[in-house]
Computed example of a mutant assay.
Amino acid sequence: MTESVRQDVKRWLENVVIGLNLCPFAARPHRMRLVDIVVSTATDEEQLLTELHHEIARLIATPVDELETTLIAVPNMLLCFQQYNDFLDIADALLEQGGWQGEIQIASFHPDYQFVDSEPDDTSNLTNCSPVPIFHLIREQSLTDALMNYADPDKIPSRNIAKLERLTLDELKDYFPYLYK
């Protein structure tokens, strides 16, 4: 199961995130093999926190030219978006307790992702829709560097929503097969 989850996340990263250019900063580290996909085996919050702590520490300890970012896929728990969203507060507290705020941030992705003040079927939610719950560990400096070389980063969300709204139902099924089972 671990390898199939890793392949699903890799396919999502390559086809959706990079293929649709939802994150204009993802292609370079992926192309340079600086992205790690870790599949969590956690089945409870304590185990997941331990794994998250380990991966944050590993990311910080590894030179950026060897590892820039980590995607932690969580296939065995937090399948309900509200539980996942609640756990994000715990993950952010871990960053604070570890003294990693300002160094690492966590981006969130989930099969049932829903932005505040959106409806469950709003197209905007697809920008953060992934095959399994994912915690994306991002180095703050990498993000800062990428944003400095990108014109109008504030327009990325609206551009992404417009791009997704132009997709046909068949295209949506191809990009997000886990939503159309």
Rank of each mutant, 00 (worst) to 15 (best):
V39R: 07
K10W: 08
L52S: 02
C23I: 09
D44Q: 05
L20I: 07
E45H: 12
C23Y: 09
W12C: 05
D36C: 08
L13A: 03
E51L: 06
R31K: 08
R31F: 12
D36K: 15
E51D: 02
W12Q: 09
N15P: 02
V38S: 06
P29G: 11
W12H: 15
P29E: 13
L49A: 02
V17T: 13
E45A: 09
I37T: 06
V17M: 15
V39M: 07
E55V: 01
V38E: 08
H53P: 00
H30S: 10
R28E: 15
N15V: 00
I37K: 11
R33L: 13
K10T: 04
A27L: 14
K10Q: 13
R31H: 12
E14I: 12
T50V: 02
K10R: 11
V35C: 15
A27W: 12
P24T: 06
Q47V: 00
R58F: 04
F25V: 14
V16W: 12
I56P: 00
E55C: 00
D36Y: 04
P24I: 12
I37Y: 09
I18L: 10
L20M: 14
T41G: 07
V35R: 14
I37P: 08
M32H: 14
I37E: 14
A27Q: 15
S40A: 04
I56M: 15
T41K: 03
V17P: 07
V39S: 01
H54E: 07
E45G: 00
M32D: 13
L49P: 00
T50R: 08
T43G: 01
R31S: 07
A57D: 01
R11P: 01
H54V: 01
H53R: 14
L52V: 03
